[in-house]
Amino acid sequence: MTELILHHYPASPFAHKARSVLGFKQLAWKSVIVPSVMPKPDVVALTGGYRRTPFLQIGADIYCDTALICDVLEHLRPEPTLYPPHLKGVSRVFAQWADTTLFGAAMAYNLQPRAAEALFAGYPAGTAQAFTADRRAMGGNHLAPEDAAAAYRSYLRRIANMVEEHDFLFGAEPCVADFAAYHPLWFTRHCVPVMADILNATPAVLEWMDRLAELGQGRPEKFGAQDAITVAAGAEPEPLPAETFQDEHGIALGSEVTIAAESFGTEPTAGRLIAATRTRYTLARSDARAGALHVHFPRIGYVLRRANHSQGEG
């Protein structure tokens, strides 16, 4: 198997989701720590514009978004499975809810001013303000803390109802839904413990989180950002599988396009559209440092446009 390189930073909730899946599958991986705020020149050299954390690199192939990263890791190591056959639909639907609605409420609650102050205690002056300004520029959900707290409490009770009956959300083994629901709660518990009292009303949720934590984070090895760029420059993108082109836009393969997230972190990536399958898009692009690359995105949650119709950076 080609080595896995995860570009992430320790306190990123979605990065923790990816790290937890790597642990579930007991995979070895290279760990590249990226900045939590812009500018991110080494990130953009590989992604072409996408700046959300994490992304997965395999040689000269770049996989954006944890939904796609989970699919890639499942393909590389099918067992234990993230998508049990009898749960294929419901686990994905639940994971999408968790990555959007649950995440939005949890993080609006988690990053209240007193929590941000605690999170950045010991950092240089201005770090908290820079982080807040960076996330505001990314757009997305701006739920008021009071509304977020009420929603978060309700969601925690619903998760508790599920894990009171089973060790994991849908049975005796974890699936993709568990990892999607876990990471914003992990952030509450471990990154902003000043806010973690909200979890005490649902002890079954804390026990479920402990079971997920016991799976570990695989076998990481420190790796430099420049080393990762060197790996990309020395590799060729893998041949694309023979999947059917699914045209929903009237944009032909080979067209110059942009792809951007629908809402949060809408900086576009520009390139040549070389695949549009049922589940993903692939762009071919070139970078002066990283060479020829294929950058892959899931269809769900992303917007495809002709390059001359792009909306520019958000």
Rank of each mutant, 00 (worst) to 15 (best):
I69E: 08
Q246S: 03
A284Y: 04
L283W: 07
P203I: 09
F94Q: 01
G122N: 11
I62V: 12
T269C: 13
R305T: 07
V194Y: 05
I5M: 02
G216W: 03
A28W: 11
K25I: 12
H166F: 07
L73Y: 05
P203S: 11
H8Y: 08
H183E: 05
H7S: 10
K30W: 05
G301R: 04
F170T: 07
R306M: 11
H249F: 03
T100D: 07
A121L: 08
A108C: 07
P41F: 12
E74H: 12
H75Y: 10
A28P: 07
L22Y: 10
L22P: 14
E117L: 08
A106C: 14
L111F: 13
L240R: 11
D210I: 00
F170M: 13
M162V: 01
R299D: 05
H166V: 00
Q129L: 06
V295S: 11
M195E: 14
A260W: 02
S12A: 10
S286W: 01
E79M: 08
L82H: 06
A11L: 14
G224C: 07
F297I: 01
F131Q: 02
H296K: 11
A149Q: 15
T188E: 13
G89V: 02
T81H: 04
M1P: 11
Q226V: 00
A144S: 14
Q112E: 15
A288P: 02
K30G: 04
D99L: 06
N200L: 14
D197F: 05
P41A: 11
W208R: 03
